[in-house]
């Protein structure tokens, strides 16, 4: 048991703070009375995940997480919701009675599977992987080891852009 007022102790407090943030955000996201609040909970949860990345010495990944998920994905979702139902606060419909237990079962199965996987894998030594998420390493890995996946992702984005252009064009002619 490390005392609280050392660097390790404070780091542990911060770590559990982020864990609590993630759980709280996830609970808000699943139990909120309306969609916008749910998205805000999701954003909170994603910021918590970014905090975990930062805790794992990968500030680059943490900032990308905030920029892309909290800054872009959540904003896009809220934007879509506001365009779809701009009027007032609407309560979400109650789902099918079996949906809750079903989702719980699936989530429990996922947790069990991931935990089993994480516990059985022989992870490399922690000391050798400090700074694994540094800017230079990510850049180098993207341009060498993972260059094919990198190019494939840009292809997917290109297809997405073309697809949205086609959809928008079709809407305009009508």
């Amino acid at each position: 048991m490390t005392p609280l007022l050392t660097v390790e102790g404070l780091a542990g407090v911060v770590f559990f703070g982020f864990i609590l943030l993630i759980i709280f955000g996830a609970l808000v996201a699943t139990n909120a009375v309306n969609l916008i609040r749910a998205v805000c909970g999701l954003a909170l949860c994603l910021v918590g995940v970014a905090g975990i990345y930062y805790f794992l010495q990968s500030p680059f990944l943490a900032l990308m997480q905030i920029l892309i998920y909290a800054g872009a994905v959540c904003v896009a979702i809220v934007f879509a919701v506001m365009l779809a139902e701009p009027q007032g606060v609407q309560r979400l419909e109650r789902a099918h009675p079996l949906a809750g237990p079903g989702a719980f079962a699936v989530a429990a199965l996922m947790t069990w599977g991931l935990a089993a996987l994480a516990l059985r894998t022989s992870w490399p030594e922690a000391a050798a992987r400090v700074n694994a998420g540094a800017l230079e390493d990510v850049g180098r890995a993207m341009m060498t080891t993972f260059v094919v996946s990198f190019e494939l992702i840009s292809l997917i984005l290109l297809v997405a852009i073309l697809g949205s252009l086609v959809l928008a064009r079709r809407g305009r002619r009508r």
Partner: peptide, 22 residues
């Protein structure tokens, strides 16, 4: 990565405007 931090945090500001407006 200071430059990235500024843009990452500033992009969250939009969420604040959305929350306020909605």
């Amino acid at each position: 990565i200071g430059l990235l931090l500024i843009f990452a945090i500033a992009s969250v500001n939009v969420l604040a405007l959305l929350m306020g407006g909605w």
